[in-house]
Design a binder for these strands. Sequence first.
DNA 1: GATGAATGAGGATTCATTCAT
DNA 2: AATGAATGAATCCTCATTCAT
Lengths: 239, 239, 239, 239
Amino acid sequence: MAGSKIAPGPIVTKNELGPRARRKVQRPQAILQAAFEEFVERGYTATRIEDVAARASVTKGTVYLYFQNKEELFQHVVGKLSQPIFDEKQFLEQHQYRSCDELVRLFLDTLYDHMTVNQHSREILRFLIADGRRFPTLGSTHFDQFVQPLMTMFDRILQKGVREGVFEIWTNDHISQILISPALTYAIEMFLSADNTKLPELKIYINTHYEMVMRTIRKARLDMSDTTRLRGYSEALYC
Amino acid sequence: MAGSKIAPGPIVTKNELGPRARRKVQRPQAILQAAFEEFVERGYTATRIEDVAARASVTKGTVYLYFQNKEELFQHVVGKLSQPIFDEKQFLEQHQYRSCDELVRLFLDTLYDHMTVNQHSREILRFLIADGRRFPTLGSTHFDQFVQPLMTMFDRILQKGVREGVFEIWTNDHISQILISPALTYAIEMFLSADNTKLPELKIYINTHYEMVMRTIRKARLDMSDTTRLRGYSEALYC
Amino acid sequence: MAGSKIAPGPIVTKNELGPRARRKVQRPQAILQAAFEEFVERGYTATRIEDVAARASVTKGTVYLYFQNKEELFQHVVGKLSQPIFDEKQFLEQHQYRSCDELVRLFLDTLYDHMTVNQHSREILRFLIADGRRFPTLGSTHFDQFVQPLMTMFDRILQKGVREGVFEIWTNDHISQILISPALTYAIEMFLSADNTKLPELKIYINTHYEMVMRTIRKARLDMSDTTRLRGYSEALYC
Amino acid sequence: MAGSKIAPGPIVTKNELGPRARRKVQRPQAILQAAFEEFVERGYTATRIEDVAARASVTKGTVYLYFQNKEELFQHVVGKLSQPIFDEKQFLEQHQYRSCDELVRLFLDTLYDHMTVNQHSREILRFLIADGRRFPTLGSTHFDQFVQPLMTMFDRILQKGVREGVFEIWTNDHISQILISPALTYAIEMFLSADNTKLPELKIYINTHYEMVMRTIRKARLDMSDTTRLRGYSEALYC
DNA sequence: GATGAATGAGGATTCATTCAT
DNA sequence: AATGAATGAATCCTCATTCAT
């Protein structure tokens, strides 16, 4: 920009930024974070730009310095959240020597962990549902960017299991979606219960979910005689 | 509930109501219906009382004749929706001679049918999620009135199956909730996909869901040599 | 509207309006008048709806009850002003026995009268000039509705004079426009001089204007010895 | 005037200015020019300092370095424009041997030329009319600096004609103003017609204007018998 | 009971102006 | 001298709510 010609302030030889420049980089981040929190707390319509600004410790005007308007701000917030929560390749490589059963368990653990720990991954759902009508693109965008990758990865694990003869999938119709569903239910319960009093204890919930998955897809081995088998590896992974 | 004020006093066996009285009874119903539709379409904040009024073919003032304010109107709308979608006793009596497998299937069919056909049953979810923060009571109210009964009924079916020796349930922790989850996922997908292009075909989806449930809970499949393999432990857990 | 069904208030048999209805008719007029005055005083951009409202003794909201937004209000104001200031047929019939000289004088008198007495007829010019860029349609609309009729009428008078042999017009090019110009100059001076101190005295100004017109178009003056001096050439040009 | 601060200190006979000093001189000029163009395009209120700055290739801050605030900037712009468009003495000396008829024609040609070619001379009018109320001094200032000199010069030509016995002025009341009026009308039409489609062809318009003037003021000579006299000199001057 | 005109608090957005760099 | 990030007053417009008819 024009600034480069004039080189305002010290000619920075090192890679340090002046306080102005540093702030200019941080501001939009701070605003996005503040906006996220406000949107989460109140929803799109009820969120006031002024509150976003206050939370980011700036004033109204500053928000408009970085974002055209409220809608654009919202889109940016959601866009940032829609990023895939974990990298497929990395996941598979990292755990390439695990059994398929263990992969399923790891997948679930990672998924619930994200949902629980990472507020972002969870609250985006609320946006999509609450303001989906107002921003029709959001839904499909998020689906492509966030949900689809999850599904695909789970599918890969299933297929791996099938190839290795440990899983048996009787249909390809929506099977991943159905098997993952309890995680969604849990997420939704999380924001339905204002106080988390009635919320299921996560550990136990995952156990049951995992068991459901395994019972659904594990190949029935004729020579099974160890009734405690299910317990074993589950406990090995999850303590 | 609040509905009692408004509820048309169902059983008017004798003399019909005069036109005045009839209107007095119908007006609030019409307004509630209109409000429901508007709230569904736009969410709480974005819904304007005037639009509700117009949709109900009355004027703003009239709305305030029957409801204190916008918030009360909303509460009434949600309250009305939260009523259980199907009656447990009736369901069980009606199908008392069915096998447990069939009961599960019937339960699922009924559930999906309600969600698909009955906009109310589906959209209430959106309310809860979208405006849950604004109305903290909603979540738990709805849970008690709407979700819990569903859960309980499914539980009864499971228990019946266990008693009859066809189902085997290894845990009591959230099992109903987890087994029903795919229905919730479907509902959410319904309002996330603006156009219903990508929506799974319902029949197939239910089939997979049903299969998942049965594989999870059905006692040792016939083609397995050891049909009793899991019994002991399941009974130990489930009392 | 809905009101008719219910007939609010007394069933008015005579042609009296209730206080509400009466106000409803008067309000838009009052708002338009107030808007006109504010726009005149400050121009489009600097005029605040709230001030318009205050001047009309209502509140902001009421203005928006009758006009979509500021721009529409402005358009209405201008539209109302653009109406022709006097009726051509009526003017000609009313004065059919006057001499052409008298008609010219009457035309000028009427024109200046409107400009002087009727603030509207004068101030519209300011709008067109000041905010013409913002509302491109205004200019041509006003020209068609307001200026063109004036011009046409003046033309008719000239032609009448030519037919009767008292006027002689050597060209058709913009002659009306040029002969009327001093009125425009006067109008503009009127709003350029904040205090009307330096303003020409109207009567004298019109006299000079009239004389200018007559000297330009009157056929050979009587005190000239050669009354036919210009005839040939004028007829050649004007057909 | 205010211009003195900014005016480049006209007579720099000796040593050239260094780049710094040169910029110090050029900046305000560039800003004034940019401001002029923006004010012309949008009017006072709708013009944003930032746009002025951008057009002058500087930043907002720089504008405030040279001008206290928006209003002062505007005053400077108008002040600069109000300078007389042509020098009376120069004009008269330059054309001292022309006939009075020719002087009138020359005067008109110069006037229209300025209005047409020189955007400044024309647009100042728009300022005065559009924002006259906001800046009451503007009107009279401009009148004194711009209009009055024009009028006076035209008066001088008339008086010269009278002295030489070719013009006959029957009154002193506003005669110059009235005779010059068509030029104003033309100017106004220029900015009323967004596209210059309907605009009169300038050459022809001036011809008619000139003819009007001459018919109004030329002394009726008894011995006139040459009906083509008017054509002659008009064509001589204007081809 | 019903109406709908009127209200005015509230929120999005703009932009002149300041000032640290 | 120049920059441009930050400010916040100002203004348009909306809409829940009231109340005279």
